[in-house]
Nucleic acid binder design. Structure first.
Length: 419
RNA sequence: GUGGAUGUAGCUCAGUUUGGUUAGAGCGCCAGGUUGUGGCCCUGGAGGUCGCGGGUUCGAAUCCCGUCAUCCACCCCA
C-alpha cells in the first residue's frame, strides 16, 4: 500500500472546517490591520535560502529538501516564508509601488526533520510581514497583532516572550563575550552545549538540561550589550506595549534560530498540554538587513509566522455542525428518478444544496442516508405522489410531512428557508 | 542522526505474561424486523496475509532474530 510519506499527513474532510475557520478568521483580522495576501512559489532557487536564513543554521545545513532541476540548477522546497516574500518584494519593486507594504501568506513549508507532536515535514504557516518601517511602533503593532490573531483563531492561553538580539553593530560584540564566558565554564556544561559553544553559542541559551541552568543564568545577557540605538528601540517597544496593555515577559534567552533577525524578537508559547514538547505556536522578529543582503534596497522588515498545525492543536475545539444538505431527494422507481434529477438541478439553481442517493435501493436505506448526512428536508416521490403530481416533503427536525404540488416544489422549499 | 514505546477488522482496542480447534468486542458499514419513511431498540451479514521476512516448535497473533512503519522524546524550530 502506498502511504503518505513520512512527516506528511492528510487533512481529512472532518478536519477541514476547523482549518477554514482559522484561515477565514485570520484573513478578516489581517485585512483590518491593512495586510494584503501574497502567494509565492513553494520552491525557489536554493541560493535564496542559503543567503537569507544563514548557511550555518540547522535549517540550511541539514533540513532542506533540495534537488537538481533538469537543467542542473539547484532548487529547494521552501523551509520558511520570509525569504520568498522578500525575494518577491525585490523582484517586483513592491516597496516603490505600495505606500504601506504589509503582506501575509498562508501555505505549506517543508523541512526534513524527525517528526513528532507538532512537527511535520510538510507543515503550514500563516506568515505576516511588514516592510520599510523602522519605528518601534511597528514592532508593537506586529506583536499586538500576533496576540490578536491567536485569540481570534481560538487560542486563548498563551504567553508572549520578548527579547532584543541587537544588530550588526552590537551582536558580534555580545557573541564574542558569550563565547569567552562559555570557555571558562566549558567543562561543567553538557556535551551538546560544549559543541554549541563553538558552532553557535547563542543556542546554549535555550538548553534544557537541568544541570546547565544555573550556569546559563550567570552568562552575559544580550540586553547588556545593546548599542545605544538598539537599546533605545527596545525600550520604546516596551513602553508602547505597556501603553497598549499588551502583556509580555522578557526572556533574554530568546534567540531565534535564523541568522537574519535583528533587534526585536518575540515568541508565543501555548500553555495547553495538547502541544507536547513543541509548544511554540508563533515566532518572529525584525530583519532590517535582509532585503539589502539579498541585493535589494535598504529596506527594513519585520514579521512573524504562526504554525497552523500547532495552533489547531492548541485551540479550543468547537463543534462545527455540518449541514451538507438542505433537501435530500428520494425517488422510488425510474420515472420518479428522472423527475428528481430535474428537481435537484432546479433546487441547486435556486441556491439550495440538494442531493440524490444515486445508488439507493430501498426507501429505508435512502431515509437512513438522509439522516446521516444531516439533511434538513427529505422530498419523497413515489407512485402515490406521481399519480397526484405532488412531492411529500418531510421536515427531518420535527418529522412533519406535507404534500406540495410539483410545480410549486422549488418555491415551497425557498419559502421554507427564506421565510 | 539518537533514544523509548507501539504495530491485530474502516476506527478504538482486547487476546501476547503461562504457544493449543474456525482470532474477538465496541463503534462504523450493509441488510432484515416495518413489501412507503430516518434517529432508539432487536436480529443477521460482510470485513482480518494478526506490519513484513526468517527462525524455534507437532503447533506461533503469542517465543527468538531481523526489517519496515507510526507515535513520543532529544536536537532544532512555527
Amino acid at each position: 500500500m502506498i502511504r503518505a510519506v513520512k512527516g506528511t499527513r492528510d487533512i481529512l474532510p472532518a478536519e477541514t472546517p476547523g482549518w477554514q475557520r482559522v484561515e477565514d478568521a485570520a484573513r478578516r483580522l489581517l485585512a483590518r490591520y491593512g495586510f494584503r495576501e501574497i502567494r509565492t512559489p513553494a520552491f525557489e532557487e536554493t541560493q535564496l535560502f542559503a543567503r537569507s536564513i544563514g548557511g550555518e543554521t540547522d535549517i540550511v545545513s541539514k533540513e532542506m529538501y533540495t534537488f537538481d532541476d533538469r537543467d542542473g540548477s539547484s532548487l529547494t522546497l521552501r523551509p520558511e516564508a520570509t525569504a520568498g516574500v522578500a525575494r518577491a518584494v525585490i523582484e517586483h519593486n513592491l516597496a516603490e509601488t505600495d505606500p504601506i507594504l504589509k503582506l501575509f501568506m498562508i501555505g505549506p513549508m517543508f523541512r526534513r526533520e524527525q517528526p513528532q507532536k507538532g512537527r511535520q515535514r510538510q507543515f503550514h504557516q500563516i506568515n505576516v510581514e511588514a516592510f520599510g518601517m523602522t519605528r518601534p511602533s511597528v514592532d508593537v503593532e506586529m506583536i499586538e497583532l500576533s496576540l490578536a490573531l491567536l485569540d481570534c483563531c481560538g487560542m486563548k492561553e498563551g504567553d508572549l516572550f520578548l527579547n532584543s538580539v541587537g544588530d550588526a553593530n552590537c551582536r558580534p560584540r555580545y557573541v564574542a563575550a558569550l563565547r569567552e564566558a562559555l570557555r571558562t565554564e566549558e567543562d561543567r556544561l553538557c556535551a551538546d552545549c560544549r559543541r554549541r559553544s563553538e558552532t553557535n553559542p547563542l543556542r546554549v541559551l535555550d538548553c534544557k538540561v537541568a544541570a546547565d541552568q544555573a550556569i546559563i543564568e550567570r552568562l552575559p545577557r544580550i540586553t547588556d550589550y545593546l548599542c545605544p540605538q538598539c537599546r533605545d528601540h527596545f525600550n520604546e517597544v516596551r513602553r508602547q506595549l505597556d501603553l497598549l496593555d499588551v502583556p509580555y515577559r522578557l526572556n533574554h534567552r530568546l534567540v531565534r534560530g535564523l541568522d537574519y533577525y535583528t533587534r526585536t524578537t518575540f515568541e508565543i508559547v501555548a500553555r495547553s498540554e495538547a502541544l507536547g514538547a513543541q509548544n511554540s505556536v508563533l515566532g518572529g522578529g525584525r530583519y532590517d538587513g535582509l532585503i539589502k543582503d539579498l541585493g535589494g534596497p535598504d529596506l527594513a522588515g519585520i514579521g512573524f509566522a504562526i504554525g497552523m498545525e500547532r495552533l489547531v492543536l492548541a485551540s479550543s475545539r468547537v463543534e462545527i455542525d455540518e449541514k451538507r444538505c438542505d433537501v435530500f431527494l428520494v425517488p422510488l422507481g425510474a420515472p420518479a428518478f428522472d423527475r428528481a434529477l430535474v428537481a435537484q438541478r432546479d433546487l441547486r439553481r435556486s441556491g439550495r444544496s440538494a442531493l440524490i442517493d444515486h445508488e439507493a435501493r430501498g426507501l429505508k436505506a435512502q431515509m437512513r442516508k438522509a439522516d446521516k448526512i444531516g439533511a434538513r428536508y427529505v422530498a419523497l416521490l413515489g407512485d402515490n405522489e406521481l399519480a397526484r403530481g405532488v412531492w411529500s416533503v418531510r421536515d427531518m427536525t420535527d418529522s412533519r410531512q406535507e404534500e406540495v404540488p410539483e410545480e410549486d416544489f422549488v418555491g415551497f422549499i425557498e419559502r421554507r428557508f427564506n421565510g
